[in-house]
Simulated assay, not measured.
Amino acid sequence: MRILLIGVGHWHTPLYLAPLLEQPGIEISGVSDPDIAVARRYGEQLGCAYATSPGELRSGKRPDLAFVLGRHGDMATEVAALIDEGIPFVVEKPAGLTEAEVRDLAAKASAAEIFNAVPLVFRSSGFMSAIRGRAQGEKLLYADFKFIAGLPSRYHDAGCGWVFDRRQSGGGVLVNLGVHFIDLFQRLTSVDGVRCADARLANLQGEGDVDDYASLTLANGDRFCRVETAYLYPAPGGVFDMHFSARTEAHYFRTTGPGVIEISDMKGRRETIDGSTTNMPIYPLFVAEVIDHLRNGGRPVADLGDMANVMKIVDDAYRIGGV
């Protein structure tokens, strides 16, 4: 299987590349990035073709699968070209700058019957697995997701300063991190019923013109969810100030530390289990599932239609809360 990586300057590239190189029968056929120095560095490291434009690489060895990373403002153009050429793809969040842009891509991919996947990886987390396993069929009453990541400097260190330019990124921490938890509430309740009841967004550290703090209240009928994300924690990449909790009809779930989940029932019985609570350990599973599903005709865990549903709430939150 020949793999094309588009926009390899993205900070998530290593999370895809390492598990891809461990998959049997995989060839990285080309890498692209608007910065030729970045493209060259990856191309030489991998011994593959490199260019500033992925179109140059698609005209050579046709890839069997493309991973679209890079700047958010470039994603829709790259995805549309892949759909036109019938090339299956994975596209990083948010896949476009607005719901309308992503919804249009989802419709085109569906009409063309093109395999497409979006890494809404928290769907496969240990926290969600615990809820599915212990509270199957139970109504969700309340959920709370707090995920405070490292400082904005980490994006500059990765060469991704465009993140702080709304014209190129579409937004800040809400677009990069908050989307995961909007998706989880939609999964735990229903897509159609979820609305943004309140939003408070701020640029606390003066980086560009995007939010580095976002707090949303989501509602679905009489069920509520709080989502809080930020770039405020002075810690290295992969270390977070985080707390998740969810109450169903008969159980209460909460994280008590990285990789640790406590499950309580209404009689006060408590059990602690191990399970992934952050996103980084889930990427190898995501990559393996994409390869397997593409090879064997399976459906992706999440696709552009799911991303469009999330972006509807994101657009509403920006209208309500501003920055």
Rank of each mutant, 00 (worst) to 15 (best):
P19W: 12
L21S: 14
P24G: 02
I28V: 13
G30H: 10
S32Q: 06
D33H: 12
I36T: 07
R40Y: 15
G47W: 07
T52S: 10
L69F: 07
L69H: 02
P88G: 08
P88F: 11
V90T: 05
A95I: 11
L97P: 00
T98C: 01
A109W: 01
A109K: 00
A109E: 04
F122C: 09
R123W: 06
I131M: 12
R134G: 09
R134I: 09
A135C: 12
E138L: 15
R154E: 09
Y155H: 08
C160P: 08
D165Y: 06
R166A: 11
Q168E: 11
G170A: 03
G178A: 05
I182K: 00
C196Y: 06
A214H: 01
S215E: 05
T217E: 14
L218N: 01
G221L: 12
G221H: 09
D222M: 12
F224W: 12
F224G: 10
A235F: 06
A235T: 06
P236M: 06
P236N: 03
V239E: 06
R247Q: 13
E249P: 13
E249S: 13
A250I: 11
F253W: 01
T255Y: 02
V260C: 15
R269E: 10
T277E: 07
N279F: 15
P281E: 10
I282F: 08
I282D: 10
F286I: 14
E289A: 13
N296F: 15
G297E: 05
P300H: 01
D303F: 01
G305E: 00
I313V: 10
D315G: 01
D316C: 02
